[in-house]
Amino acid sequence: MACAVRPGGPDPEEVARAAARRVRRPLVGEHGKLMLIAADHPGRGALGVGGDAMAMADRGELPRRLVTALARPGVDGVLATPDIVEDLLLLGALDEKVVFGSMNRGGLHGAEFELDDRFTAYDTRSIVVGGLDGGKMLMRIDLADPATVTTLESRAHAVTELAGQGRAAMIEPFISRRVDGRVRNDLSAEAVIKSVAIGSALGASSAHTRLKLPVIDEMERVMAATTLPTLLLGGDPTSAPDRTFAAWEKALAVPGVSGLVVGRALLYPRGGDVEAAVDQAVRLVSGG
């Protein structure tokens, strides 16, 4: 299916004009929760959903699914790379929505340099100029890799810069390592807690920092390790949908958890009903 978002290549300045026209809103509404749709996986070469390795490859279909999801009541906004944010701007889908720009996509999925999570997408200046609400940064920490300290340093600078501009920093930390040549994130409670402690301390101020964390069995222990507002990530839907939603519901009840950032599980649900999947996630976040 061909992508019709930018037929023939639009006037490049139209993206800037669309960004300037966008109607912004407060980061968090009266209920204090956020329900965000994630769409930054393709920028890292991660196109798979479940058993379909190329599920997100159609760049005409992805914006259509995103527009459908963003139009559902209770969806606060999106987390995406510049190309996808710009498509959504051109489609007029981002008015009154929160927009987080994905900052680092350099650690390509499956690459020998996968743990090199350097910034290759948004930076603080482009987030501010584009009128975005914040920046999200993946931060994988391999204690056996000396290059990890460069990742930590660059994240610290970004957190400081975003805070200085009054923009939110969303940190997604993991303790990671290579197993048989593949990068694996350690999802034990101890590892997630350690990643939370490291991520929370980054930068000269945490006043605008939020965490984005995986859902694990011991979320109470994890959330006891931070005072920062925390969003839950959805991940690749490998288990039955009922089990996934039940895990989200349980984790959302833990104090300090303030919402969901979910992409593939809602944009490419089993059965294909994006609206129903998104509405179910919204109900969980709102407590309805």
Rank of each mutant, 00 (worst) to 15 (best):
R6Q: 12
P12I: 03
E13G: 15
E14D: 15
A16I: 02
R17Y: 12
A19V: 07
L27C: 05
L34P: 09
L36W: 09
A38M: 06
R44T: 04
L47F: 11
L47Y: 06
G50W: 03
G51N: 10
D58T: 08
R64C: 06
R65H: 14
L66N: 05
T68N: 13
L70R: 04
T81P: 04
T81E: 15
P82H: 01
D83N: 11
L88S: 08
L90H: 12
L91W: 01
A93S: 00
D95Q: 00
V98C: 05
V99Q: 02
S102W: 12
S102M: 01
S102I: 05
G110P: 09
G110A: 14
L115D: 15
F119E: 13
Y122P: 13
T124C: 11
R125V: 14
S126Y: 07
I127H: 08
V128K: 10
D133L: 01
G134H: 07
K136H: 11
L138G: 06
L143W: 10
L143N: 03
P146E: 10
T150K: 10
T150E: 14
H157K: 12
V159P: 04
T160G: 00
E172Y: 09
R177N: 11
R177F: 12
V179M: 02
R184I: 07
N185T: 03
L187P: 09
I193Y: 05
I198W: 13
I198Y: 10
L202P: 01
L202K: 00
A204N: 13
A204C: 11
A207P: 07
T209V: 11
K212Y: 01
D217H: 01
E220K: 15
R221K: 15
M223Y: 01
T227E: 15
G235D: 03
P237V: 05
S239H: 11
S239L: 15
A247T: 01
W248V: 09
K250S: 13
V257I: 06
S258H: 04
L260H: 00
G263R: 10
A265Y: 12
L266H: 05
Y268S: 09
G271P: 00
G272Y: 06
D273N: 15
A276L: 14
A277T: 01
D279I: 01
L284I: 14
V285C: 05
S286F: 02
